[in-house]
């Protein structure tokens, strides 16, 4: 039944170092870290590390089953692809409806995209085009980030129900 997966950060493990943000940017460009040309890549991470008084944790897209961003898009530019909710950049006109619709501020827009100037919406895409999978998870020094797969959630639910019965 559940069709999408999402990446979530554990606030108890997160140290607010923002390596995940850097990893995200690098995951979405061909250019290499340490080269001259990397300087031309705009810094547009698809997750935002938020620091409040007591905690730090990255905020990123939940790939909602009923994604309000997708529903709000007048150009039908946000679609369900694989296990992610995905922005089709060519269709996006930059109207900001998705930004308004997202309850957690996980979608933003830019005018500075690499290559042809395009002002489009961007959000976590589960590193769909990266063979090794979500880079924020892999590069986090404290292993604070993990992926929640539909199967994992379903298994977890079953386990919790079982333990309720057992403990009664």
């Amino acid at each position: 039944m559940l069709e999408t997966a999402f990446v979530i950060g554990n606030p108890d493990l997160c140290i607010g170092c923002r390596t995940c943000e850097l990893a995200c940017v690098l995951a979405h460009t061909e250019k290499q870290l340490g080269t001259e040309e990397i300087k031309s890549v705009p810094f547009l991470p698809r997750l935002s590390v938020v620091k409040t008084e007591d905690i730090s944790v990255p905020v990123q897209c939940r790939q909602c089953e009923d994604a309000p961003c997708a529903e709000a898009c007048p150009e039908k530019a946000i679609v369900h692809r694989g296990q992610a909710i995905y922005v089709l950049a060519d269709k996006c006109v930059g109207c900001k409806n998705c930004l308004m619709a997202c309850p957690i501020g996980a979608v933003y827009l830019t005018r500075e995209a690499e290559g042809a100037c395009q002002k489009t919406a961007y959000k976590c895409d589960l590193c769909a085009e990266v063979t090794a999978g979500p880079q924020c998870i892999q590069k986090c020094p404290t292993k604070a980030l993990s992926v929640m797969l539909p199967a994992d959630i379903e298994t977890s639910i079953k386990a919790k129900r079982t333990s309720v019965v057992k403990n009664t």
Binding site: P11, T52, V59
Partner: peptide, 23 residues
Amino acid sequence: LVEPHKEKKDKNIKAVATIAGMF
């Protein structure tokens, strides 16, 4: 008047509470 960057920032901060709730 919607100022998108403020909108996003406010929502991000509110989202922190939801994440803490999950854990």
